[in-house]
Design a protein around this nucleic acid. Sequence first.
DNA 1: CGGAGAATTGACTCTACGGTAAATTACCGC
DNA 2: GCGGTAATTTACCGTAGAGTCAATTCTCCG
Lengths: 196, 196
Amino acid sequence: MSRPGTKGVPREQREQQILEIATTEFGGRGYAYTSLTDIATAAGVSKPLIYTYFGSRDGLHAACVQRAGKSLVDAVASAQTVSGADKALATLTAIFRALDGQTENWKLIYDTTLPRPSEAYALAREYQDALNTMGAEGVAEVLAGSDDADDHSLLLALWFSIVSTTIAWWSENPTQTPQQMTERCLRLFTAVRQPA
Amino acid sequence: MSRPGTKGVPREQREQQILEIATTEFGGRGYAYTSLTDIATAAGVSKPLIYTYFGSRDGLHAACVQRAGKSLVDAVASAQTVSGADKALATLTAIFRALDGQTENWKLIYDTTLPRPSEAYALAREYQDALNTMGAEGVAEVLAGSDDADDHSLLLALWFSIVSTTIAWWSENPTQTPQQMTERCLRLFTAVRQPA
DNA sequence: CGGAGAATTGACTCTACGGTAAATTACCGC
DNA sequence: GCGGTAATTTACCGTAGAGTCAATTCTCCG
């Protein structure tokens, strides 16, 4: 593309730029289908530069995941109002508000093409669990009477996947506002609750 | 490994053997992380043989998906008793019974590492949809009053993911019998229904 | 103005994988 | 027994992607 030699962009700034693009790429196509060459091209930068800054493909990916994960956790935490009843639904609402505009981050953290097991998956999983735990309290409430560990385990997994699916649905129907999503979920929730 | 020349195994039989092994490999590690060399080695057969019989990696994968998909659809269809109330739960039960021993097939059809979009994904998706539709009737019932298409769309996606997640959980806790799974789901279902 | 160090790249290596060509062996009908 | 055909392999090609080396240019400080 262009000649070698510095362009005067300081490292910190380039790193941020690369992280943003890489997050979009990794999140969009998935880890398994995103090559460093792809990212370098998209970022308008050469491959060796990425290596000098992030060490390896996995290093870059890890950096993206950390950034995205922190951002999501912060957003959800600060959006979470301590509502009394129906904590689960409140958490969903918080997530919807927090996610407005960070769907790339979400897709990165919940990338299903990550190899399992792997370092990359383990790291993403940490943030998944962190976000998960924020909703777990309300979920555990539902099974207050029971002490069956497997029941809790499965219900948590289900909660997990419900959130993921809803977000995925949202990112395929992006015209929806957080407000609308909340209302929609409330409708479905109550509909399911009512005996048929 | 061994010298060329036939070993007297007829084509049909070899094909079946390869299909079985390939299903396990594709289903286990995921499409994105399973190479033909892996499969050939696991099947104790050479790569060109697979090409002669299935044409390409995608050809082999497609054959696996068809086989697995048909088997699953058949099993679920025949296990599905027309119970009156709570069709969704009945379908889940049917799936649990049908799935006993075919978790490999399930993992293949619901492989999340498939590239999207792609022929391979489209085919797997067909069977996902087919299985999905079998439960969809009960799901639609829940929203009998509403005609909001988006509501139906999201709820269907959720149903979808609930089934997937439960199966995934099961395949990580394989000591559970279908009976136990059914009871567990019933417990969770009623627990969620009761207002907290 | 000169040079040290940061920023940046083109061009390379190595490996793994999808796919192919051609040769080899065993079986089966005549 | 013999030739045709089905079954099967070894050895190879082309490509793409991870990772590396050494050279080049800019900036900024003295």
